[in-house]
């Protein structure tokens, strides 16, 4: 009796440890690709805060970061933008719309096999600078472009 109790206790302990171990293993691959969501940066209401929270407060303007965005967007809900980085070691691309209620629009973590290029369509709350921030070899760079939006019937 005592023996079987001991056995079962040990077995449970072992299974418990095994379960915990397998759980850790299951989670491990998720950490390998992509950073955890930077909730604070996404919730930030000011562009300066969002930039600081991704670590890009001191980002430098770079000619090697290309941002293609329209001069005038007729539909502020569909603004087509393209970002390309010629910087070696580009690992992450962020997109910001400076005057959006929450300026951080998207973060793209690039892994080996994909070019440092993305195209995406975004919503803009107002005419504003669109900003592309790139992390390459641990440093932060950016490009920006002003896009005017014509909202509703107030096209000007």
């Amino acid at each position: 009796m005592a023996c079987s109790q001991l056995m079962s206790a040990t077995r449970r302990g072992f299974l418990g440890r095994l379960g915990g171990w397998m759980f850790t293993l299951a989670l491990a691959p998720m950490r390998v690709f992509g950073a955890e969501r930077n909730v604070d940066a996404f919730e930030s209401k000011a562009i300066e805060d969002a930039l600081r929270l991704i670590g890009a407060a001191n980002a430098t303007a770079s000619d090697a970061v290309f941002l293609k965005a329209p001069d005038i967007a007729e539909n502020s809900a569909i603004v087509h933008i393209e970002i390309e980085s010629k910087l070696p070691g580009t690992e992450t691309i962020w997109v910001f719309a400076d005057k959006n209620p929450q300026p951080l629009v998207a973060q793209f973590d690039l892994l080996p096999g994909v070019d440092p290029f993305v195209a995406v369509r975004i919503k803009m709350a107002d005419s504003a600078f669109i900003r592309a921030v790139v992390k390459a070899n641990g440093k932060y760079w950016f490009a920006q472009k002003e896009t005017k939006v014509t909202i509703g019937g107030c096209a000007g």
Partner: peptide, 25 residues
């Protein structure tokens, strides 16, 4: 089967999102 692009988005990506990327090799 290998992850090449991992994106986090906000609600400010347009309705019916469009995404373009380029794979090498």
């Amino acid at each position: 089967g290998r992850t090449v692009l991992d994106a986090q988005w906000s609600q400010a990506v347009s309705k019916n999102p469009f995404l373009e990327f380029r794979l090498r090799g």
